[in-house]
Simulated scan of single mutants.
Amino acid sequence: MRDILVIGGNRYFGKRLITRLIAAGDRVTVLNRGSSAPPAGAVHLVADRNDENSLGKALGSRTFDVVVDQVCYTPRQAEIARRVFAGRTGRYVMTSTVEVYEYENTAGLVREDAVDPRTVTVDLELPWQDTEFLDAHYGEGKRQAEAVLAADPAFPYVAVRVAHVLGGGDDFTGRLDHYASRIRSGEPIAVPAVNHPATYIHVEEIADFLVWAAGAEFTGPVNAASHGLLSTDELCEAVAAQVPEGKTVFRSVEVGEVSPFSFTRAYGMDNSRARRLGFTFGEARHWLPRAVAETLGKGN
């Protein structure tokens, strides 16, 4: 039986991760600010992960085989975590994002070495505590958080760079609802003049991936994405199948805000490292109709 700590993880694929770990027989502790209780079977610790004293006091003398950090968004948070968990865990899995590749633009799929966290500049003086700043610099926050963890060669970290997640009736993002409402009303869907496809992963698959990553032995960054790129057209086709009375109309824009899942740059992720390490991905086009049906409430 492993002792596993999950920081955050009370919604969406985090809930699924915790449920899977408990079902596998792991002793699971969930740490959050106390806003919601973890799934049944988990130990609950309450602390502010931004406060090093609060975090250390809540943990006490506990040690863990694995820590899965679902809510590390800034280099400041990563610095606290690295100090607190050094010597306290055998493995530290940080949930990162495809957005670390926000400066990449390639015709091919992007590999992990396109962003080496050991070469990323860290600026702890930026206003990471400001919500608006953090929202506008989400990818950069994750890049710098990875860099802080990578700076200590002895710290056994993994950064799971997660593709855009789809599926589940509890998808709280509203991104597919954005398309459904416009298709239903015939309102134009704004897309870039040159609109690139992207990589995605199903909510159940990323939960499986994180369980697998927790039990593996590799370290460093790893991309987590289903096989195949999906375009905005394909997403809308799947949404339209659930909204048969609607009409899909695209409006190409040169500047200004565009719809979710429409991209001015190409940065689909190469998943070959994870495959070589032993994880088997599904095909995005195979699960897309089910994912859309789940989220729009017609697949439950």
Rank of each mutant, 00 (worst) to 15 (best):
P117L: 10
R27F: 09
I80K: 07
Y103M: 12
S36P: 08
P127M: 08
Y101R: 08
D113F: 10
T97F: 04
G60V: 04
V115W: 02
G141P: 01
V93K: 03
L55A: 05
D130R: 06
R33D: 09
R88Y: 02
V120D: 01
L17G: 13
L59W: 09
T74F: 06
D69Q: 00
R91M: 01
M94H: 00
T95Y: 03
D69W: 00
P75Y: 03
D51K: 06
V98P: 06
T97C: 04
T63W: 11
R49K: 12
I18D: 09
A107T: 14
D51I: 01
A78N: 02
I18K: 05
G41W: 05
A114H: 13
G41C: 07
V43Y: 07
R76H: 10
L134W: 13
G87M: 07
E132N: 14
E79R: 15
G56T: 05
R111K: 15
H44M: 08
D26L: 05
D48E: 08
W128K: 05
W128P: 03
A86Y: 09
E102I: 14
K142M: 05
E52D: 05
T97W: 05
V43Q: 13
L31T: 01
V98S: 12
E125H: 15
L21R: 08
G56R: 11
V115Q: 04
A23C: 04
K142E: 02
N105C: 12
T131E: 12
F64E: 04
D123Y: 08
L124M: 14
R143Q: 12
S35T: 10
R111Y: 08
D135I: 14
K57R: 15
Y138D: 14
V66T: 15
H44N: 07
D130T: 01
V110H: 05
V46L: 00
F133D: 03
R49L: 02
A58D: 02
T119G: 06
V68P: 00
R111N: 10
L31Q: 02
V110W: 02
Q77I: 12
P38Q: 03
V98N: 13
Y103N: 14
N50G: 15
G139Q: 09
Y138R: 12
Q77L: 12
D123I: 06
Y101L: 09
V120L: 01
N50S: 12
A136I: 13
